[in-house]
């Protein structure tokens, strides 16, 4: 490094001859062909299956390209002080709130039942959340993050997914015990049933908005 180096420029010592990377166009074309072929195959069974397939692929691509990570959205505020992924998650929740409210409300107006899952809440929710939180930080990703990084070629996540499956099987085996001791006694809270539709819908959006503002303040409070 020379003495003339200023504080704003980083002088890099790259290898003299950068390694030539293999072209991945062949793999990309092959992957697109396989995705399209499976999509066509599924559409012949049921069009809905094909739509779910392409939605899943699309979500995976976005997850990878955006470096989106549910684990990091809760971990980074403490580790790096960054809340960019936290805010991205809050926006995702807000979009999902609008979408699910539209679906459920439309179905309700038609006289149908509430669609989607309304699960009992209680101490088991907290226990599960803590266990899952510890697990996903150690294994380096939640379920979707693990799947995405398996595809990226990070070999350790293949071990994660195997233990993830083992854990899920164990959980399914003990589901009866949990139902008997916790789920049956726990209340099922459906927010529109408790606060009314307007209160639940706008209340949830307002709460997410407040959290968004808090997250922004948390990230930039030091620089001001």
């Amino acid at each position: 490094m020379t003495e003339a180096q200023t504080a704003t420029t980083l002088i890099r010592r790259s290898p003299a001859t950068p390694k030539k990377k293999k072209s991945q166009i062949g793999y990309t074309l092959a992957a697109i062909a396989v995705v399209a072929a499976i999509g066509i195959f599924l559409a012949q069974i049921k069009v809905l299956l094909s739509m779910i397939w392409f939605l899943g692929i699309g979500l995976g691509v976005i997850l990878q390209k955006a470096r989106f990570c549910f684990t990091a959205s809760l971990r980074d505020p403490i580790l790096t002080g960054s809340t960019s992924l936290t805010r991205a998650t809050l926006i995702a929740f807000a979009v999902a709130t609008v979408g699910f409210a539209a679906l459920q409300f439309t179905n309700l107006l038609k006289g149908g039942p509430v669609i989607g899952n309304v699960s009992p809440v209680g101490i088991h929710t907290a226990i599960g959340a803590v266990l899952f939180g510890i697990g996903m930080v150690i294994s380096g990703g939640c379920a979707s993050g693990t799947l995405m990084r398996m595809g990226e070629g990070f070999a350790m996540q293949w071990i994660s997914i195997i233990t993830f499956v083992i854990g899920s099987v164990l959980g399914a085996m003990h589901f009866g015990w949990w139902s008997e001791h916790f789920f049956n006694a726990a209340p099922k809270i459906y927010l529109p049933g408790t606060f009314g539709w307007a209160g639940a819908f706008f209340g949830q959006l307002a709460l997410l908005g407040v959290l968004y503002v808090l997250a922004t303040w948390y990230e930039y409070r030091k620089s001001n």
């Binding site: 990878q64 470096r67 990091a72 790096t80 990084r149 990226e152 990070f154």
Partner: peptide, 8 residues
């Protein structure tokens, strides 16, 4: 070689 570290 973990893409997540590339961000944080």
């Amino acid at each position: 070689d973990h893409s997540c570290a590339l961000k944080n």
